[in-house]
């Protein structure tokens, strides 16, 4: 599947607690080109995860527009968003969230259960995804038989098994030591450079962010600044506007 670009126009998001409005994002504008790798940094409560959830269609903006590829998310029903997400977005979480009673291969296969697909095709895709993350030989291991880094790699395989255009990673290295973090970040680089996935990664870790082509800084719900990574140049057409 080809990469998708992402465009946010004047996105606002507020939460309500006991009828009290808590604004999180204030008129955010952002463009992420197809095949870009963007790291999102900022203090806690700056709206990073909220932004990630909005782009992934897990939540809807209070105002403004979000387009991912051809999909205008604010116009889609929950059912349509769920279906869209299953095909176009892969999620990676800090705590992996693998199903403990399933093997690595079965965890990777889970998203494919939503598709009408022969078992042989599912098996082929699972093997491919596990090979990409370097865990083909751990297919039959359960999560408790894997290290943290390996669990996260299984989670990445689960995120890419449907071949989505966009990968959204919420602190994917937050629970890993430096060596394992490096492995995961190299893997994300591979998915971006070799498979052309558009990646948006939330992180607190500057070393993790340094693997991205661009780093955007959020603070108090506004896009504070954007840095180009001098080591990794942005893809053509990828730029940010605040």
């Amino acid at each position: 599947m080809s990469a998708a670009d992402i465009e946010l126009s004047n996105v606002h998001k507020s939460y309500y607690k006991d009828r009290l409005e808590i604004p999180v994002l204030h008129g955010l504008n952002l463009k992420i080109g197809p095949g870009d790798f963007v790291a999102m940094m900022g203090p806690s409560g700056s709206g990073k995860s909220t932004l990630l959830h909005l782009i992934g269609g897990l939540d809807s903006p209070s105002d403004g527009s979000i387009r991912v590829g051809d999909a205008l998310l604010e116009r889609m029903t929950e059912r349509a968003l769920t279906a869209w997400r299953s095909r176009h977005v892969g999620f990676i979480f800090q705590m992996y969230h693998l199903v403990p009673v399933l093997t690595a291969a079965q965890n990777v296969e889970l998203p494919l259960l939503l598709f009408r697909m022969p078992a042989s095709e599912r098996r082929r895709r699972v093997e491919t995804a596990l090979s990409v993350v370097g865990l083909a030989d751990r297919a039959d291991h359960r999560p408790n038989q894997l290290s943290g880094g390996q669990e996260q790699r299984v989670a990445i395989a689960r995120a890419i098994v449907t071949d989505p255009e966009v990968i959204l990673a919420d602190e994917p290295t937050g629970d890993l030591d430096a060596r394992m973090s490096e492995e995961i970040l190299n893997l994300l680089n591979l998915l971006n450079s070799e498979f052309g996935k558009t990646i948006l990664m939330v992180t607190h870790d500057p070393r993790a962010a340094s693997h991205a082509r661009r780093i955007i800084h959020l603070d108090k719900g506004v896009l504070e600044r954007t840095e180009e990574n001098p080591v990794r140049q942005p893809m053509a057409g990828a730029r940010a506007a605040s």
Partner: peptide, 14 residues
Amino acid sequence: ARELAVFKAIGFHS
């Protein structure tokens, strides 16, 4: 709860 949330995130309808 969080596992079910992840199921939803990866495309399982409510």
